[in-house]
C-alpha cells in the first residue's frame, strides 16, 4: 500500500498499488510541474518508481495570500 499526504489540503489518500510517480500524478490530473512529490525528505521526478509501503507527500504548487 502507498500512503499519500496531499498538501495544502492536509488530506490522506491510500492506494493498493502505484508503480511510478507519473501514475500517482495521473490520479489527481496533475502535470509534473504542478506539484512536488516528496519521499523521505527527497524530491522525486515523474519517472521514479514507487514501492509498497512508501509514504509520499504531494505538495501542490500554489501561492498563498
Amino acid at each position: 500500500m502507498i500512503i499519500v499526504r496531499l498538501e495544502p489540503e492536509d488530506k490522506i489518500d491510500t492506494y493498493p498499488k502505484l508503480n511510478t510517480v507519473q501514475q500517482l500524478l495521473n490520479k489527481y490530473d496533475l502535470f509534473y510541474t504542478d506539484a512536488l512529490v516528496i519521499r523521505d525528505g527527497e524530491l522525486l521526478t515523474q519517472d521514479r518508481k514507487l514501492n509498497d509501503g512508501d509514504e509520499i507527500t504531494l505538495r501542490k504548487v500554489i501561492s498563498v495570500g
Binding site: 504542478d34 512536488l36 524530491l43 505538495r59 500554489i62
Partner: peptide, 11 residues
C-alpha cells in the same frame, strides 16, 4: 516559475 521557486525553497 512557481514550480521552480517551490523546488528551490524545498531543497
Amino acid at each position: 516559475s512557481e514550480f521552480e521557486s517551490a523546488n528551490f525553497s524545498f531543497l
